[in-house]
Design a protein around this nucleic acid. Sequence first.
DNA 1: AGCACA
Length: 276
Amino acid sequence: MSMMDVDVQPPTQLTAIASPQLADGLATLPMLIPLNGAVVNGNSTLPTEPPCETVYVQNLNESVTMNTLKQTLTNLFKNYGEVLDVVAHHNLRMRGQAFVSFADPEAAAKAVKEVDRFPLYGKPMKLSFAKTRSDAVVQKLDGTHMEEYKAERMERKKRARADNPLRRKAQARLKASAGDGTAPQAGRRIVQMPDEYLPPNKILFLQNLPDSTTLDQLQMLFSQYPGLHEVRLVPTKKDIAFVEYVDENAASTAKDALHNYRLDGEAKMKVTFARK
DNA sequence: AGCACA
């Protein structure tokens, strides 16, 4: 339903690779082994992106609600492997970003390669590997060392804070100028953006309505959510309709509430943002 | 721009 009805890269079959073995003796904090690619000496050697299990996503459309965002990201990324967790925050510092954790670093690598620049909700996502492992991954690797891991993470944070910020700025600049000659446009094979990933719109698009659906019925249903402007049926097609709200936020609320609602107790109606 | 998770 999600990615399948359009021409999108099919789910990647990945053979499971051996997870890092906790060598018997020295395995106190196996997950703290630095994700390779550490900076060697301040200037010349740039860190190569480490094969972290977690993908760091930037440039997300910030007007999408947290729930739909997480849901959508899970749906999208599970095409590349088992998704353990999706973490996103709405606060000033963290909005527009998300962390998608895979069980398998190869799945993450595949996702970074193929999904980078994919336009989700109207904005091309920037994908890279997370700097640190996520809790979900650590849990999976070795749930028993969670507490120690968190303690260690605190330490790292402190050290980072003490670290000279100027040096980091310089590194960032270097990196920006270095890469970026031929980043392949992701999503080349997509002939049409799936409805689910369209950017917010004050107009909603309803699909899969039962034949018996009436205008009154829809008005009744959608007026439960504030800001309803108008419901429009499509004379030639009984199974679809448009519902317009005063703004995107209002529409978004109604959409989240009524997507998959069963009007007749049977079929689920699909509610997405309309195409512009 | 911005690398979190209690």
